[in-house]
Amino acid sequence: MTNIIEVEGVSKSYGGVVANHKVSMEVPVGRITGLIGPNGSGKTTLFNSVVGYQPIDEGSIKFKGQEISKMNVQQIARLGLLRTFQQTRIYGNMNGVQNMLISVSHRNAAFLDMFKPYPAEMKDKAEHLLEFVGLYQKRKLSAGDLSFGQQKLLEFAMALMNDPEVLLLDEPTAGINPTLINGLLDRLHRANTEFGITLFVIEHNMRVVMNLADNIYCLAHGELLAHGTPDEIQNDQRVIDAYLGAH
């Protein structure tokens, strides 16, 4: 099993607050990896470090064997390592199709490509993916007018439009009603199996993460607490104390 992301000994402090301390983890290619932990345990900090949002203090982050910890957000995104946001971010004044089209990967974009129109097959792909997440009927509405759950689905579809190799999802089901969660869960599985995208998911909903991921990392106080299969994690006393059931 090869690892597409390798995080090794990564530390990150904000002033005196240590958000990540010597965290190491591996994301195997083609699988779904979960990341859990109590609030403030450093999950989003780690995501931010991986996608280049902030410089790390020490350690190494590799994507397909290439060191990326010194690269900026756009360069990393163009490598095919993409993230969605905890606070959903879409382009509010543009309609669904436009949101999709601008999300087409800029990986191989030459300078003059920006003055080209979008070919018909890209529009087809955009509509197909909107259909995939169930937003086809809403495709001509301003994305800002969609409900929160629909915006999450749109953001997910936009990420798929980009053809990423790895998708980092920061709480994909937060704030979504239970019916929609099942649908989203199904779409996430299909993104992994049908489109072959490796997923790395932060999730607070235990039912979701235990169903979704085939291996899970647990962070607490900025340090790696445990790693294992969903069963191992659910039965790990340290995880239970730190997070799952201790009061």
């Binding site: 957000v73 995104a77 993230r83 971010r89 879409i90 382009y91 990967s105 800029h106």
Partner: peptide, 11 residues
Amino acid sequence: DDEDKAEAMGV
């Protein structure tokens, strides 16, 4: 609409 998002998408 959202420059940070555009950056995160590799624009």
